[in-house]
Structures are given as C-alpha cells and as structure tokens.
C-alpha cells in the first residue's frame, strides 16, 4: 500500500496556508464532544451529549431568563477608576482598557430589569471574561444599586455569581465591597423581598464570602466550581488529597450549602417557581 505512505515526514503546510475553521463555529466540551455553535445556543449552552454546562456571560443569561430576551440595563456606564495607582507587571488602567477592548464590557457585572414569565425581575449577572469576574468598586456599586432598585420597586433579585474573587488591584476597597453588598442584602431581607443567589462556574473567594452564599435560596448549575479558597491553595496548605468532587455544586449541596442544582434549561422555570411559592402567588409559566 505504498500510495498511502507520506512522501515527506511531518506537516509541510506553511502556517499562513493553514485552513482554519472560523472561530465560534464549533464548540468542544471537556469530554471531547463537539457541537455546532448554533445548536449549542439553542440548547441553553449545554452540550447535548454530555450535559456539560458551558461557561456563559451576562448576555446569554439575560437572553435565557428574560421574556423574549428583552430587558433594560441599569447603570451601564459605571466604570472602574484606579484609586491606588496600582501596578504589578502591568498597570491596572491598562488592564482595564485591554479587558474592555477584548470583551466589549465595561466591568465584570451587568445589571438589568425585565419581565420573566410576565413579572418584573432584577438580575445582576457577572462576566468572568472581564478580569476573571473579579469584584471591585464597580461590581459592588452596581450590585448595591440593583438591590436598591429591587427595594424601591419591590421586585425580586437574582444575582448570578461567576467570579474568581475580589479584585486585587483595588485592594482593601474591593474587600469592602463584601460589606457593602451584604449591607444591601440585609436591607432587602428586612423588606422581605426574595433574593436568589445562582452560583455558576466558578464562584470563589470574595463572592462566596458575601452575596453568593446569602440568598434566601442558593442554587447552582451541574458541575460548577464553588468554594472560598481555591483547590490549589487548599492542597498546598494542608497537603491533603482532595476528593474528586471537591468544591463542585454537588459537593456543596451534599454539605448543605445549596438548596438545589438545576439544569440550565429548567433555570427560568425553577427561579420563578420559587418566587411564586415563597410569595404565595399563582404559579406562572
């Protein structure tokens, strides 16, 4: 079968002659399942063969949870300052500029109000691709203002966490956002307005130590990573072998920190079902 044999060894095609599949046409899940991008969007960004919940951002969650994907964005022009003149290997101001150029986002959270099953709902959804979904002053302020909107208009609040933690480049100011957001949630609790915390992959650090764990219900999606200290830090500090499911949504539910885990296609239904039940109103769908 000599005609099957490669004449020259290795790949000879020059880089510029490589035929690329345009980016975003296909998606490959961690188990290797491949799916067409349009199909994936139709399937709530869940890989149909292995049920892998792809990491998505505010845009996708808004389109899943608001009726016909229609909503009014709140405080969309809030942007970060660099109060400390922070510089590591890169200037914080440059990081912000790059992140904005790369993602088209202003910061790591977007807040919006819209109808979900016909009734108003306020949603704050974090974007991991903006500096790891880190929480600085803007994230804190936008979440606080979203909660204010809920308070003023008596509308339930959903926060969709997706964050590596507090934003180091704002140091203690970012730490104080834990207190700021928690104070607002305390006011929401006093006013008996339901607050649903959806922890998505990943929810770690400062978000876990504040709003992500403070919902009237805390819920998640299958397989999401949720924890305070990251798994590497825990392994390095304790030298212990960690269980395979360590800090997964399933692990947290088993240890009593999540009310339930929902498949993304049931997300809208389950959030609204909870709201209707806790407020003792007719069930919508």
């Amino acid at each position: 079968m000599a005609w099957f044999k490669r004449k020259e060894k290795g790949i000879q095609t020059a880089t510029e002659n490589k035929k690329d599949v345009p980016k975003g046409l296909w998606y490959k899940s961690p188990t290797g399942k491949i799916i067409d991008a349009d199909e994936l969007a139709k399937n709530f960004y869940v890989s149909p063969e292995d049920d892998y919940h792809v990491r998505i951002g505010s845009n996708e969650y808004f389109s899943i949870l608001f009726d016909e994907g229609k909503y009014k964005e709140l405080d969309k022009n809030l942007t970060s300052k660099d109060p400390l003149g922070f510089e590591d290997t890169k200037k914080y101001v440059d990081r912000l500029k790059d992140a904005e150029a790369k993602t088209g986002l202003k910061d790591a959270v977007r807040t919006a109000v819209g109808k979900s099953f016909g009734k108003d709902l306020v949603i704050a959804a974090m974007d991991f691709k903006f500096i790891g979904g880190s929480m600085g002053s803007v994230v804190g302020e936008k979440i606080a203002r979203a909660a204010d909107y809920s308070l003023k208009n008596n509308v339930p609040l959903v926060i969709i966490s997706k964050s590596g933690g507090a934003r180091m480049m704002e140091a203690a100011l970012s730490l104080m956002q834990l207190a700021k957001t928690s104070a607002k949630l305390a006011q929401l609790a006093e006013a008996k307005i339901p607050y649903i915390s959806l922890c998505t992959d990943p929810t770690t650090g400062g978000t876990t130590a504040s709003f992500a764990m403070l919902g009237d219900i805390n819920i998640s999606e299958p397989g999401a990573l949720i924890g305070f200290a990251g798994p590497r830090v825990v392994r390095d500090t304790t030298g212990q072998e960690l269980p395979e499911d360590f800090q997964t949504a399933e692990f947290l539910k088993e240890h009593g920190f999540l009310d339930f885990i929902t498949h993304r296609k049931e997300l809208k239904k389950n959030i609204n079902l909870y709201i209707d039940l806790i407020l003792n109103q007719a069930i919508r769908n």
Binding site: S182, S210, L242, G256
Partner: peptide, 24 residues
Amino acid sequence: YPGLEAEERGQGEAIARNILEMTR
C-alpha cells in the same frame, strides 16, 4: 483557614453570614 474541612463546613458562608449580620 483554607482547609478541606473548612470548605466542607462552608468557610465562605460563615464569613458572609457574619458580615451581613454585623452590618445590622
């Protein structure tokens, strides 16, 4: 403490709860 048991028993939740309760 960033430990295995600390995570199992909800280190994040414990701190979050304290912060919220202390604000009020």
